[in-house]
């Protein structure tokens, strides 16, 4: 397990025991973290599981691939650290990782 902290736009902190091998999106949904919608169910096809990874943890979360880049490019709130959480595969090295949830999903 990896303890991951998701911080909502309103500042609420949700600390979850994330299961390695599953996506961050799936872990967030299983722990009922508000603000991650995941309409497409993890196909990198809707953009509604957008999150911002804190800088220190970005090297662990892998590269943004072409399709994810295309979806992120549609977001008006795109920023450094923007990721689709369905494309982040949780590993035990992510224990302690901090991720912020945007104000809205669209």
């Amino acid at each position: 397990m990896a303890k991951i902290t998701l911080i909502g736009f309103d500042g609420d902190q949700h600390v979850i025991d994330a299961e390695p091998g599953k996506s961050l999106m799936a872990n967030a949904l299983e722990n009922a973290v508000p603000g991650i919608d995941a309409d497409c169910g993890g196909a990198c096809a809707c953009g509604t599981c957008h999150c911002f990874v804190e800088e220190a943890w970005r090297p662990l979360t892998g590269e943004v691939e072409y399709m994810e880049e295309s979806m992120l490019g549609m977001r008006p709130d795109r920023a450094e650290g923007s990721r689709l959480s369905c494309q982040i595969n949780v590993t035990s090295e992510m224990d302690g990782m901090v991720v912020r949830i945007p104000e809205f999903q669209m």
Binding site: D39, C40, A45, M71
Partner: peptide, 18 residues
């Protein structure tokens, strides 16, 4: 209930869905 296909998926997904 949000797992439906009416808005499409991918880069052309409905812009005005919200």
């Amino acid at each position: 209930p949000r797992h439906h296909i009416s808005f499409g998926f991918g880069i052309h997904r409905c812009m005005g869905n919200r």
